[in-house]
Amino acid sequence: MELEFKDIKKSFGEKLVLDGVSFSAASGRAFGLLGRNGAGKTTSIRILMNVFPADGGMILLDGKQIDYKSVSFGYLPEERGLYPKKKISDQLVYFAQLHGMCRTDAVRAVDYWLGRLGMTEYKTKRLDTLSKGNQQKIQLITALAHDPDIVILDEPFSGLDPVNARLLKDVVLEVIERGKLVLFSSHQMNYIEEFCDSIAILHGGRVVLAGELREIKHSYPRNRLTVRSRDAERIRADLRLSGDIAVDTDESGALTVTLPSPELKGSVMARLTETYDIDGIYVTEPSLGDIFVEYAS
């Protein structure tokens, strides 16, 4: 299944929110939709889920205009919220039914997911008696219980402790492996880097960068090296003698070496390995955070 946003436009009154947004995502993979606050991520998601129509452009699924009767969505909104005073199982079954499941299947699916996320003991409790992390797990069930074709997770890891974050990671990987199309929206770049094969960065209502994350990173000049060595100070002094090589130290204490041209990296790596006691030396790619800051600021 391939989802394609094609030149989507949307305005609210005088304000142009989306100005010809285009990107594509495929099932069995995770797609990262990135952007600063107000960049148009939530508007894109709402148009995708048919909450309101676009002013222009098309959303295609496998090359055809999307048919909302034949595709189902699971959504974990950034603004979490369910019914605080209602029983957890009641509202989970309700949302699964709203997504088209019959009551029996909904009850079965909810029981499965409560068990999968270790929440069975809270089944008959009211939502407001749960901790924030556990409420978030309950919210995740509303996105997954009806086995949707497209799963949209908006800031899924915010507010989770490391144990719950690990549990959620496992669940997301499971969903991706089951061939679902997973769309991530997050400011936590490490999670996007971990899960997403392709990304689109929105800025000012336009896509300023889109494509395979690996290719995007490879497209950057490969002229930066990371060097770990007990002879770091000697290496720094040595390289500085070359004049046009810049040397810095990163947060972990490793040296980051910026060469004037990528062609030099082989000879520099060979010389350093032969001359000094090197623990590790490799070509450094830009992080997603670096790329995001470059394009979204």
Partner: peptide, 10 residues
């Protein structure tokens, strides 16, 4: 309670 965020998409 922001349950609406989910309801409008359901």
């Amino acid at each position: 309670s922001r349950a609406m965020e989910l309801l409008v998409t359901s």
